[in-house]
Simulated scan of single mutants.
Amino acid sequence: MESLTGRERDVFQLLLTGMSNRQMGRRLDIAERTVKNNLHSIYRKLGVSGRAEAISKHLGTCNRNGSQAATQLGRETSDARPESP
């Protein structure tokens, strides 16, 4: 698996919070099309076909690495959670 770029990691962390492409674009101040391009690159690098599979693969990695990895991810993404409507 290839390494994700910094921007791809940003997009992926927001993906894990359940944000839409539009919400991610607004949060990162990038075009929605740029978000889509980043997602396609992430999927290719992870060897998955979409959002659900990417999340599932990530959760499987967290489970294999122990609960400490899942706890760390929670800390990293807590600031990236979508705002309430």
Rank of each mutant, 00 (worst) to 15 (best):
Q68L: 11
L73K: 04
L59V: 01
R9D: 02
A31L: 10
Y43T: 01
R27A: 15
A54Q: 12
D79Q: 05
S56A: 08
H58L: 15
I55D: 10
R9F: 11
H40R: 07
R44E: 01
T77N: 06
R27H: 15
R44Q: 08
G50I: 02
D10V: 00
R75N: 09
P85D: 13
N37Q: 05
R27F: 15
S20D: 03
T5F: 05
R44H: 07
L15G: 01
V35A: 08
C62R: 07
M1Q: 13
S67L: 10
Q68M: 12
R7Q: 13
A70G: 00
E2S: 01
M19R: 14
L4D: 12
L28H: 13
G6M: 06
L59Q: 10
G18M: 07
R75V: 07
M19G: 12
G18N: 02
T71I: 15
D79T: 11
R64E: 03
S20M: 02
L46E: 10
G66R: 08
G74L: 06
E8Q: 15
F12T: 02
L39K: 08
S20Q: 05
N65M: 06
C62D: 06
L15P: 02
R27S: 14
S20F: 11
E2R: 14
M1N: 13
G6R: 14
L16P: 07
L39T: 09
R22D: 09
I30M: 05
P85N: 05
G25P: 03
R81W: 06
R81F: 12
G18C: 09
N37A: 04
S49P: 07
Q13K: 14
M19Q: 15
G6A: 11
D10A: 10
R81C: 11
G47T: 10
Y43G: 00
D29R: 11
A69D: 06
H40M: 05
K36Y: 11
G74H: 13
A70K: 10
N63A: 11
M1H: 14
N38D: 04
G47E: 07
A80N: 10
N38H: 07
E76Q: 15
T17N: 02
Q23G: 14
K36F: 13
G74P: 04
L14F: 04
R22V: 10
A54K: 09
E8K: 06
R81M: 13
E2Q: 02
M24C: 06
I55T: 15
R51L: 05
I30P: 04
T77A: 09
L28W: 08
S84Y: 13
I55S: 15
Q13R: 12
R51H: 15
T61E: 06
Q72F: 14
A69P: 00
T17A: 00
R9A: 15
N37Y: 05
N63H: 02
